[in-house]
């Protein structure tokens, strides 16, 4: 056995501690650095396909730190234990349509403090804030910054452009 492996495997306790430290460091990276989220389901068509894509998520934006309208965000679904990806359409204080556009009386509500309004790109096939209401910013896991297809990577940017005032 090569000597460096011998040092790594060394006494059992020391190698167990090393493995534990390494796992904890990985956790730190996934929690505060970058992690992935699945893009399953039809709710984000045509931005993401139904199957076969994974997303790169920046955890710097977790708990809604510095998110902007138009960002794709990964969030903990408030009504079950899954993770979803949707588009951010309203921040605290904004007025948003409660229902699908043109579907009912176009009632609007103001997003309460500490909450956001998130909607899927494929309106008929998405369960989002139109169903479970405003989502607490604390449930945001991070911002989607890239798309991982098999053998291909693509950065994702906010499609909205800030317009300069007159």
């Amino acid at each position: 056995m090569p000597s460096f492996l011998g040092g790594l495997l060394g006494p059992p306790l020391r190698s167990a501690i090393f493995a534990g430290k390494f796992l904890a460091f990985t956790h730190l990276f996934l929690e505060y650095g970058y992690s992935t989220a699945p893009a399953h389901g039809p709710s984000m068509l045509p931005t993401f396909e139904v199957l076969g894509e994974w997303l790169l998520v920046s955890r710097r934006y977790s708990f809604g730190r510095g998110v902007e309208i138009g960002d794709l965000i990964a969030y903990n679904i408030p009504v079950n234990d899954g993770v979803g990806v949707k588009r951010l359409l309203g921040l605290p204080g904004d007025y948003v349509l409660v229902d699908t556009p043109g579907n009912s009386d176009n009632a609007m509500i103001q997003v309460p403090q500490g909450h956001c309004w998130i909607v899927g790109d494929n309106l008929p096939a998405s369960r989002d804030s139109r169903i479970f209401g405003p989502v607490p910013l604390a449930l945001i896991r991070g911002k989607v910054i890239g798309r991982i297809k098999p053998f291909r990577f693509q950065w994702i940017e906010n499609p909205l452009k800030r317009v300069e005032g007159p």
Partner: peptide, 20 residues
């Protein structure tokens, strides 16, 4: 912490009005 919740328990949670 999110499993088997019962009435009366003391829980800590992120404030919905202030995520920090």
């Amino acid at each position: 912490a999110q499993l088997d919740l019962e009435r009366g328990m003391l829980v800590t949670f992120r404030n919905p009005y202030d995520p920090e």
